[in-house]
Design a protein around this nucleic acid. Structure first.
Lengths: 340, 340
DNA sequence: TCGACTTGTCGAACCGGTTCGATTCGAACC
DNA sequence: GGTTCGAATCGAACCGGTTCGACAAGTCGA
């Protein structure tokens, strides 16, 4: 291992001088700086991360806590993870990926051993047991996903209330008066996935305001059940001309369901989904949808966290940043068909 | 921060005694050990990771290098990542997730700063520029994905040669004599994804041995192109009774292609895919397939890496472990239809 | 009863960085 | 010409662990 002592010796200066020459925290003559830098290059010196962490109490590592829940669409998680790691690197941080079953224990372990400078929590639930510890931790933390009580924490999430309203308004403007909304399974909600009901409630309220009929259904999250449920829903509500999908599995199943019933979108039925752009591309889903913006949320969360770590942000101003939904138009909406 | 000095003071012993009491590396009286352990509990002591790393030259962290390539099916990567992180935790290691564009630079940075005890490389290419550095690095490394020259490295991968043979043999035994094989796009191969050609070559060779006709095609990796290509292939080879898919996008597109042509599987055509179990479940793909066994490969890679780190494995015995393929039967194969 | 071992503990050094205070030197100021 | 100041550098201490060598006390056999 080449240490800063080696660099100092080769450059003919003391260790402290070498350190200052590299950090620039005290003025150093140009001559000495050059010699030190040359020595660094000649020896191939890289500072030892552990020693640096010990001396500075900074690790340049972020902890990324990912919760993987059963019945949740896992691939979407990858987008968040990539958004976080890429942005972290761009800002000079590496990412420790933590997937422990017991999130609180993991948080405690990582936090108290001072392995990271801050935390990003993914998949935050309505009532998340990790938040209590996080508020008291000595490192700052940022959430992706809005909990019931975000007090004192920075939060980034899609604005699901606005999303619910936007879906309904969009179809209402086109003239639709009867819609079906398919949500994630109810147990996702029970587990704390409040975004499901935030979207559904907002949609229902907006529908009521606009005089639109809205049939809400908690769909299964797996095939082939969800396909059957979709078919049943279409049977039960033949007057519905619009379908809103806050359920990835439903979106994936819909093409076959429509085809087997001889229905086309948007000619017979307008469809708006809520899933990631990436998901849509992978499965060529032809439905207009509100993008989950996973990578953008991860990006913003890191940006904010790093600001906190580096003290460039007022410590007493936690922020709840709800990303405004936008519909990626893939042509699956139109005026409702005229019926007899 | 509570340090081992605090523990020692509360327990009324020296720092070294406290350290030995906790590590057990020297004999310590039961009385003292109890006092130290009590102090640890009372104070809530957790060792500082940076200090420990500095003192022991061990970080208890593994570096996971993931390469994300364009046109590759990204969600599959998540399975590998989870396999690695979970197994790592089970063995007392955390995981640093590295997604840098420039893998070699990242490897150098992480390795030389001594942030990790070892590396897992995902998505290893036929000729992978990271391997040269890895062989010379001071930490051991393990590959998931077989490169052209695995000399000196531990490698874990699905046995794609056996997979190609197995696909052909399975349909041959059922009586099929004309097959179509759809691979990943050719540029995946050019980029170093040799597994594509390993499977294709093995399949072609085995087909020749068995007197089976095999039409090989490099398919697109995205919708809707791949759907069109599949339709064209079926047109071009009406005598083919079996379809082998080493291409996730093709598998995802096939149900619609078959349906729109009025074909059913396995009645009209037998299908065998090669994709992860998870992928199949998410999209309810009804085709028998060879599982990529991503989590199992990740698990084995970590197991091996940890053995190397902890010196429980002979340093001079790198191993190439090719996972034997197995077909998950979903009922999409049968005897070929009898034709006029 | 003495020497040899064993057991349990302590102090000091070390890992590789950063940072504080002190020192030297030359320039600027009055 | 003495004082003051800033620039440049060094040595020492520190971060929080681990580990080596020394040593005191107790055990055992001869």
């Amino acid at each position: 291992m080449v240490t800063i002592g080696d660099v100092a010796r080769v450059a003919g200066v003391s260790r402290s001088t070498a350190s200052y020459a590299l950090s620039g925290k005290r003025s150093i003559s140009a001559e000495v700086r050059d010699k030190v830098e040359q020595a660094v290059r000649d020896l191939g010196y890289t500072p030892n991360a552990g020693a640096k962490a010990l001396a500075t109490s900074q690790t340049q590592v972020l902890g990324l806590l990912a919760r993987f829940l059963e019945d949740e669409f896992a691939p979407a998680m990858l987008q968040y993870i990539l958004g976080v790691t890429n942005e972290a690197r761009a800002r000079g941080y590496d990412t420790l990926l933590i997937t422990d079953e017991d999130g609180v224990a993991a948080l405690r372990r990582i936090s108290e051993s001072r392995m990271v400078d801050g935390f990003i929590l993914l998949n935050v639930a309505e009532s998340d047991d990790r938040l209590g510890f996080l508020r008291a931790a000595s490192q700052p933390g940022t959430l992706v996903g809005l909990p019931g009580d975000p007090t004192g924490l920075d939060v980034f999430d899609l604005d699901f209330v606005a999303a619910g309203r936007l879906m309904v308004e969009t179809l209402h403007e086109l003239g639709h008066r009867s819609l079906i909304l398919v949500s994630q399974p109810e147990h996702v909600l029970e587990r704390g996935g409040a975004y499901v009901s935030r979207l559904a409630n907002a949609a229902q309220q907006r529908a009521a305001e606009l005089g639109v009929e809205l049939h809400h259904h908690f769909g299964a999250s797996s095939q082939p059940q969800i396909g059957v449920e979709l078919a049943n829903l279409l049977d039960a509500h033949p007057e519905a001309t619009g379908l809103l999908l806050n359920n990835e599995a439903a979106a994936a199943a819909l093409p076959n369901v429509l085809q087997s019933r001889g229905l086309a979108s948007p000619a017979d039925i307008s469809v708006i989904g809520r899933y990631s752009d990436d998901f849509a591309r992978t499965f060529s889903l032809p439905y207009s949808a509100i993008d989950s913006a996973a990578d953008e949320l991860g990006r913003r969360a890191v940006e904010r966290l790093v600001s906190r770590i580096e003290g460039t942000v007022d410590a007493e101003s936690p922020v709840v940043d709800l990303f405004a939904p936008r519909i990626d138009d893939r042509g699956s909406t139109s005026v409702p068909p005229t019926r007899q």
